[in-house]
Design a protein around this nucleic acid. Structure first.
Lengths: 165, 165
DNA sequence: CGACATAGTGTTATATTATAACGTAACTTA
DNA sequence: TAAGTTACGTTATAATATAACACTATGTCG
């Protein structure tokens, strides 16, 4: 396994997730500061909810979590979608199209193409950077100008295979 | 441009679409016959609507088209979704996750992984077969068992670049 | 043929995901 | 502090998808 794979597939490896979480939040703060953007408390709340795991959450799951934590409020969907829009625009989270869900990015702010391996059993998601050069060269041969890529591979991770489905 | 690319990127090339359409419908019929499956008239209608172009259509677009063509009926969403489910299971169409839409498959019945280049201007979609070997080998190194892949690259095709956006 | 089993369809209702529109609050900067 | 801008809150609704159940068509075996 290459060092690159080690970093990318952190979701599928035991790691100190508290530290992972703190690290990513701190990178997000720095990034917003550098870009003169406001990581408001709503945006931070939504990011923190996503940073809590390497699993994708639906917008309404995030909404439920916000409403659970601060049970005095009754937050509406638009609020969550707006925070998600901001976080995606800044490369702090990704949308998993095949699940209508969102996940924290492990390389915050890199706008490069991401690829995901999604375990359908434990729902952990590993993120990789950089898209298939073969496909890119096919696009290039066609004169196709690439903008955005969605690469989502679903399957069963090694751990879940061990435990049986 | 390789011969493979020529075939795959048919959507981005001038071609006799009538013939393309007839050919794919006939392949679908043969495939269902071979598999002892019923290509009922509903299923055929939905397939034909998708075969009419190399553009993805939403389930509700298909529904509207069914209701337009046979204005006596008032068809419900479930009917369309059921036909789509059958056609996907048999590899006659694909779902484009990044658009919540469906498109006819140009290699009917091959259950192999498909990859798409989607023009955000003309909405034509080119389909390629076989997934990035680099990503597959990363999956393999992790002991990740791949089931299903979603590879959707959005951009602007050569023709639309010429015409300016 | 006729009774049964199964697969497909039609219908109603509802769940899930996402956005539009508009007013208010908070921050920023002169 | 006033004006401009950005973000938030609220209400309503749009767009996408599925569940549940009754009815119909098709196949099949006695």
């Amino acid at each position: 396994m290459s060092p690159k794979t080690e970093t990318s597939a952190i979701a599928f490896r035991k790691h100190d997730h508290r530290r992972c979480q703190r690290q990513l939040l701190s990178e997000a703060r720095q990034l917003c500061e550098a870009r003169k953007l406001r990581l408001t408390s709503r945006r931070r709340q939504v990011l923190e909810i996503l940073l809590a795991s390497h699993q994708p959450l639906g917008a309404y799951d995030i909404l439920a979590e916000l409403n659970r934590v601060d049970s005095a409020e009754r937050i509406a969907p638009a609020i969550v979608y707006r925070a998600l829009e901001f976080l995606m625009a800044e490369g702090l989270i990704h949308r998993i199209e095949s699940r209508n869900a969102f996940i924290s990015c492990i390389h915050p702010g890199h706008h490069s193409a991401a690829q995901f391996l999604i375990c359908r059993d434990c729902e952990q998601v590993a993120e990789f950077e950089n898209i298939d050069p073969g496909l890119l060269s096919a696009a290039d041969n066609l004169g196709f100008a690439v903008d955005h890529s969605v690469v989502e591979i679903t399957g069963v991770c090694a751990e879940c295979q061990k435990h049986g489905d």
